[in-house]
Amino acid sequence: MAKQLITVTINNKLTELYVDPRESLADMLRNDLKLTSVKHGCDVGECGACTVVIDGENFDSCIYLAIWADGKSITTVEGLASLEGELADIQQAFVDDGAIQCGFCTPGFIMSTLPLLNVEEDLSREEIKKQVSGNFCRCTGYTNIINAIEHTREKIKNDRDSDK
């Protein structure tokens, strides 16, 4: 099948590439760009292991066609750490709170939390849980993941307050 040219910003870098119109965004990121943090857990939008952020919103990239990404901006977990390799707050919180075990759900899970981190109004634990219920984790029982999200939100809030 004839490939199509798309222009897409990936982890802050403008990229042009030819993609198969049948190809999922997950496969494009994994195969063409070697962003292998994007995991396959089901390939049908059930597990969240392939979650990426597209223009600020989280999506299951396995059920998102690569050609739909044309003109959009995509972030994967590879795009979070600083150039020097310093982890983003949410990544560090996952590490410190014991929110990682096998790690297979981790990149997708972290991406699902991103839209929540800067929400300024208070979010209850229940609300946070609801927001990330599209991501399965079989290892951790979620408790430490929710802790990591809360701790990061607190840190971001404190940083925001001290900036004011």
Partner: peptide, 23 residues
């Protein structure tokens, strides 16, 4: 003590079976 593999898993560089595939 934080896990020895936690950072590698948090930054997406940990390679699982499918990530090692030959083109």
């Amino acid at each position: 003590i934080n896990r020895v593999d936690a950072v590698t898993k948090a930054d997406g560089t940990a390679k699982y079976t499918e990530d090692l595939l030959d083109d």
